[in-house]
Amino acid sequence: MCATCGCGPSSHDHQDHEHGHDHSHQNGKGKKVIDVEQDILHENNLLAERNRGFFEGRNILAINLVSSPGSGKTSLLERTLTDLKGELEFAVIEGDQQTANDADRIHATGTKVTQINTGKGCHLDAHMVLHAVQGMKLKADSVLFIENVGNLVCPAMFDLGEKERAVVISVTEGEDKPLKYPDMFHSSTLCIINKTDLLPYVKFDVEKAKEYARKVNPSLEIIELSCTSGEGMQLWYDWLKSKVLTPA
């Protein structure tokens, strides 16, 4: 069963996977015990690898953007897509529980965007991304941003096949976010601290936030910026360009 797009198992080659672990034996009480030994996220991980292979084959840099609701994912994209227009080729997948508001905002920048409405679902998964990508005609040597549902917990567990995972926090949130939601910071490669223009007005200890984030993930890269004032955006653009592999 597919909770998202309604397609049944048959449409996804869910044939019996060979796991070599499928021993069964009688337990003596006339019952059959099956040793399954299968990862619960197996299906998602397989599809994620399929997406990853697709992206790698076309030299597409896929970036999964995650954050609490309202930390500034869409704002970051709007500004980036506008500022780097003509320099890099972009496409966007917007994950949202209900509306198409974010997709409309991206569309207004002139960038190709596909909307995934997750309904009650609190995260994107590899399967949804697979379907979205199928309809997108992505260009080779491009950057694909995937804006996940605003939620700092659930998306952590679901590999979408991305190359980089960027977690956005804003200075209006507590600096202890990394400790409260360690899974997300553990699985991310970049942390963006957004809304630094508000630092004079809020009690947010940037150094503490960075220290906490590095406790969870010592190799996490951290960039401070403001989508509103533009301060620090250049660091993000430099990071982005450093990740784009120039075609051979």
């Binding site: 069963m1 198992p9 099956i34 998964d125 567990m157």
Partner: peptide, 24 residues
Amino acid sequence: MHELSIAMSIVDLAAEQAAKHEAL
């Protein structure tokens, strides 16, 4: 709540195994 997706994946996985072993 990603726990729901996890639980649903378990149901899928179990149903697949049950079908394979013709269990109801």
